[in-house]
Nucleic acid binder design. Structure first.
Length: 241
DNA sequence: CGGTTTTGACCCGCGC
DNA sequence: GCGCGGGTCAAAACCG
């Protein structure tokens, strides 16, 4: 029958379309994860600015929110990946491992007990790319033993995608630690939560340029919407921690 | 077997 | 020059 063959054609075409969409979705997911990682690094840089401010004055919540805006309003000649930045990760204080999952692969090359802190400091080098100069130090905070402080130095000479292709779960996105806070500063390491906090606490002054440039790209907005939807679906299947 | 971790030795800058 | 402390090296152990 003619109608039967045309139905088969339609089914074939639909299958092909579904497969194409699936591939596209996968690409978009990887792209979203790369952007997420970059965002985390940028946020860590902000955190560093915030900390240096707090050491000078007694930072209340209001002050540190203002600083977010001030640091964005300030003209910058360079706004690349942070050359040196700190992030805080909430962990079990009894856990002696000094591991901070941030989406990159690291090779530990040393550990030292420092004078000002009873817990040891671990030294890592990025092992995702042969000549990558990035290093990080991880040490438990003295004030709050449940916090791991990771200090990053240098700029990666590669993207984060390299490792993402191998595993479906991005360590940063699936970070089991819901939030970390120290002296009134809260860093939410849960990806979706972080986005919400960001939009609540800042007027996005400095982010405007970045966001609007991305928003002008229809491909990006579509990609982001799809990736976020998928990300949320995946996260909803994870056990609540 | 190749990559990673461990850990004591070594290096180097800084203050005295 | 010397000692101290933080950072790195490198050989051995470990692990998937």
């Amino acid at each position: 029958m003619a109608s039967q063959t045309s139905n088969q054609d339609k089914v074939g075409a639909l299958r092909e379309e579904v497969e194409n969409l699936r591939k596209e979705n996968e690409d978009l997911r990887l792209m979203f994860q790369a952007i997420s990682n970059r965002y985390n690094i940028l946020r860590a840089h902000l955190q560093e600015l915030n900390l240096s401010y707090q050491t000078k004055g007694n930072g209340s919540l209001t002050q540190h929110v203002d600083l977010y805006n001030d640091s964005f309003k300030r003209p910058r000649t360079e706004f690349s990946m942070a050359k040196s930045s700190q992030i805080f990760v909430k962990t079990d204080p009894k856990d002696k491992s000094l591991i901070v999952r941030d989406g990159f692969q690291w090779r530990k090359y040393g550990q030292k007990v420092t004078k000002d802190n009873t817990s040891p400091r671990a030294y890592y080098r990025c092992s995702m790319s042969p000549g990558c100069p990035v290093k990080k130090k991880v040490q438990r905070s003295m004030e709050d033993k449940s916090l791991l402080v990771a200090t990053y130095e240098g700029e990666h000479n590669h993207g984060v995608e390299r490792s993402l292709g191998k595993s479906l779960s991005c360590p940063v996105m699936n970070n089991p630690f819901q939030s970390a806070s120290v002296k009134g500063i809260a860093i939410d390491l849960n990806q979706s939560g972080a986005d919400v906090e960001m939009s609540r606490n800042s007027d996005k002054t400095g982010m405007e340029g970045f966001v609007s440039s991305l928003a002008k790209d229809p491909n990006f907005t579509l990609a982001l919407a799809a990736a976020v939807a998928r990300s949320m679906t995946e996260q909803s299947t994870l056990p609540m921690l």
